Computed example of a mutant assay.
Amino acid sequence: MKPGLLVISHGSREAGWVALVDESIEAARAHLGSQLLIEAAFLELVEGRLIQDGIDRLEAAGVTHLFALPLFVSSGSTHVDEIGWALGAYPKSRTETELEPIRISAALTYGKPMDDDQEIVDVILDRMKKLSIHPAKESILLIGHGSKEEGFQEAWEQGFDSIGEQLLRLGGYNAYSSALLQLEEVPERWESLMSGHPMNEIIVVPLFLSEGYFTKQIIPRKLEGLRCRYNGCTLMPHPKIADWIVRKTLEWLKDLGIH
């Protein structure tokens, strides 16, 4: 038995985006040790480092048991579903996909994305400290990409609700709401927070893996004219992302009987 880890994220044409993923992978590798073979792969846009490329390299190195970990924010992402189908982890894709089935010989375990895991909540709390002055007099508006697809939208909302409960409990904030860009919810949710807690300051946090088009252009555009604090800080770079990868991988290795 020779285990291997394949961390899968979306990918970007921006070299800096890819570099942030690689930095998190290298930090995880430092904890997991050189005996475990690790590859970072991307759904699209990164030539020579797509999912099939990563699997081929791991299997060429002798990997017999593979843990494919989706480095995505939510189980509501349609990409998580289509990747699972392409890997053979799911019998069918619940949405239309242009992916083709991926060749794989190793025994596969397909992991779960970040959702409301503690490490992610910790990152968000850390990001909010840069904007927060008096938590008890502040409201939180968490913004994510979201999905209009049935079942996927609900998964986004459930994850965000759980995160919100933890932010209120652990951070001492006064109120919470979330908005999904795909559903055009930002103005409505901002107004709801203002109406319910008019004396509060609103802190806006983007729940995105890395800075890019949505955090630099789309969200600021949605917030124009709305009184709030926003700095666009995303989940990466942060050491807790590597911690999440390490924990998920160690749990998988334990299930395999490898300690």
Rank of each mutant, 00 (worst) to 15 (best):
L180A: 11
I241C: 12
I83H: 07
I104A: 04
G257C: 15
A136G: 00
K240I: 02
A175F: 07
M128Y: 04
G232D: 15
T64K: 13
T249Y: 04
S139Y: 08
R229V: 09
S139H: 10
D81T: 11
A107C: 13
G11V: 12
S9A: 14
L141C: 02
Y230V: 10
A89W: 13
V204W: 01
M114T: 04
K92D: 14
T97N: 07
M1S: 12
Y176M: 08
R29M: 08
A242H: 02
E149H: 01
I120F: 07
R127G: 11
M128R: 03
I8T: 06
G111L: 04
V186Y: 05
E44K: 08
S192Y: 12
C233G: 07
L168G: 05
P135L: 04
P113E: 14
L43K: 12
Q166R: 14
P239I: 11
L256G: 13
M199F: 05
I120C: 07
G257K: 15
A89I: 15
L20W: 03
R169A: 14
G111A: 06
E23H: 10
E82I: 15
P135G: 02
E154L: 10
I133G: 01
I219T: 01
Y90M: 10
I102R: 08
E251V: 15
I219Y: 02
P220D: 11
K148A: 10
L69V: 00
D243Q: 13
G159P: 01
M114H: 04
L5H: 12
D117V: 13
V46P: 00
E98C: 14
H145D: 12
H31N: 06
G54Y: 04
W244V: 00
E191H: 08
